[in-house]
Design a binder for these strands. Structure first.
Lengths: 174, 174
DNA sequence: TCATAATTTCAGTATTTACTGAAACTTCGG
DNA sequence: CCGAAGTTTCAGTAAATACTGAAATTATGA
């Protein structure tokens, strides 16, 4: 008789889903998307839209939008079961893969646009021949250089095999 | 006669402030805070609340709140000028310092709470003796280990002197 | 090809987050 | 201690973002 364990598991999982969802907010990810991701990460089986709706108590439109968004990120994938007409979804569970996906997506959404702004300002302020103009250009230049550099580093790291990244990290912490 | 240059500089700076503000949104930072930061980063002189209000066309309350928030992050500091009663503000302009400040703040707001959730779920699911329970515990364990590890690495890197970090990064990119 | 199950879209609404403006409070020189 | 300059707070409002629910569309297999 394992029903006590079943209850504990259910509660713990619900807790994880709810809290992970709340955290998503601080990550620029909407609550529902983070909750669905949490739900699927802790679900051994692929599940369908209706079960997601029921488990999270959300509308079909909401479930649909966020499932698609997670698929486009690559954090979950669709599964077709033979003899079943509807789609099922399962999460990528490998932590290193999750990390690299999120890192790339954030670079694309947060760093690349910043670089764009900086390069444009660099161009616009090139050759302004006043003390203030040179100071502005210099500041833009430093920012652009640093952000570009950081972007490349992030790319390299998230393109590594897990083992290599681990080695590198281990040297840093030693 | 440098008024053409002055106009170009003014436009470029306004552009930078506006666009940097828009970017702030994607970084979990509100637009005004990012705009004030951009304004001060490109301003050679320390400026006061009223000038911030005027340059960004925002209310006193808004300017005040976000200036204080930037001070609490350490991205700007207050300056007292002799013979002046009011406070002036100037930005930290060193890119490495800006990076370490932002990195630490984001760790505090994004990673630490996630670790908290994971550790709690680890505890809650310890010893649940069903296949599903063990799988859940295992997944929490992997996530917690990875996030904790990443947090330590980020700490180390953002605690480095710029020169050392550069060397490290150079090795990565070579 | 039709009936129906499943998916997608979107106008309207709810929720969350940010901002205003004015009043309350604090500080300081006279 | 008083009055003016400066700072802080916050109730009300505006703007941005996320969600619902139902209708439109598409895919399936009999």
């Amino acid at each position: 008789m394992s029903s006590a364990d079943d209850v504990k598991l259910k509660q713990s999982r619900e807790d994880f889903v709810a809290q992970w969802g709340a955290l998503g907010t601080h990550w620029g990810i909407n609550r529902t998307m983070a909750q669905i991701h949490a739900l699927l990460m802790t679900e051994p089986e692929a599940i369908g839209t209706d079960e997601v709706m029921e488990r999270l108590q959300i509308s079909r439109g909401n479930a649909h939008t966020n499932l698609k968004e997670l698929v486009s990120w690559g954090l979950i994938r669709t599964i077709v079961k033979k003899g079943e007409r509807r789609e099922f979804f399962e999460a990528e569970k490998d932590v290193w893969k999750i990390f690299t996906i999120v890192a790339r997506e954030r670079r694309r959404r947060e760093i690349d646009p910043a670089l764009g702004v900086l390069h444009q300002c660099l161009d616009d302020s090139r050759g302004i021949d006043t003390p203030e103009g040179r100071a502005f250009h210099e500041q833009m230049s430093k920012l652009a250089e640093f952000v570009g550099f950081a972007s490349n580093v992030a790319d390299r790291v998230s393109g590594m095999k897990y083992g290599i990244a681990l080695q590198l990290a281990a040297r840093l912490l030693s």
